[in-house]
């Protein structure tokens, strides 16, 4: 499946508030330009991470997490850059999310509607923020997801502005809320 088809599918799907179709996940475990094949997650975990990412950064007038390839980057970074301890935390969190989804919401997390997913994750986030240290699995996943998103070409140049060589410096430029931000 080509990326633009994926974008189309996701747009359609999210417009209809349905779960992601199987075909969306097809390319996520393939090696990309840098040649690193993501192989950390099981197929099921991979789908959950993709669903999490798209739930956090959905397709709108700019691309969502899946169409920029953020879930693949997340897996590559977890696989290659995380310590064994942090890898364990990611995995444990996914398992817990899946168990809760099944027990309390009647199905696998990845198969729930985006609205339901957002509801579950928001509740988890609230509990985590009120908990000891205010930091946990949800924040860890969110930080990784937005980092991976902002560091993709599509994310950096659609949702944001990005230039390799800005060519000039200004300490004071006009800005109003809603303007696209240079990163």
């Amino acid at each position: 499946m080509q990326r633009r088809e994926a974008v189309k599918i996701i747009t359609t799907v999210f417009g209809a508030s349905l779960a992601l179709p199987e075909s969306v996940f097809a390319r996520m475990s393939e090696a990309e330009a840098a040649g690193i094949k993501p192989k950390f997650f099981t197929g099921k975990e991979r789908k959950m991470v993709a669903a999490f990412a798209e739930c956090l950064i959905p397709e709108t007038d700019t691309p969502g997490a899946i169409s920029v390839g953020a879930p693949r980057w997340m897996e590559v970074l977890i696989q290659d850059c995380y310590t064994a301890e942090d890898q364990g935390k990611i995995r444990t969190g996914l398992a817990k999310l899946e168990a809760d989804s099944k027990a309390q919401h009647g199905g696998s997390f990845a198969k729930l509607s985006p609205a339901k997913q957002a509801e579950i994750l928001s509740a988890l986030e609230k509990a985590e923020r009120n908990g000891p240290g205010g930091y946990g699995w949800v924040r860890m996943m969110k930080d990784l997801c937005k980092t991976c998103y902002a560091n993709t070409e599509k994310g950096a140049t659609t949702t944001f502005n990005w230039l390799l060589a800005p060519g000039r410096w200004s300490g004071e430029e006009a800005y109003k809320m809603g303007d696209r931000v240079f990163i």
Binding site: P58, T62, S122, E125, D179, V181
Partner: peptide, 15 residues
């Protein structure tokens, strides 16, 4: 940034 979805994304894309 707290939250998930469209509103989160809007905030993320702003200063």
């Amino acid at each position: 940034i707290e939250g998930f979805g469209t509103d989160f994304k809007k905030k993320m894309a702003s200063h």
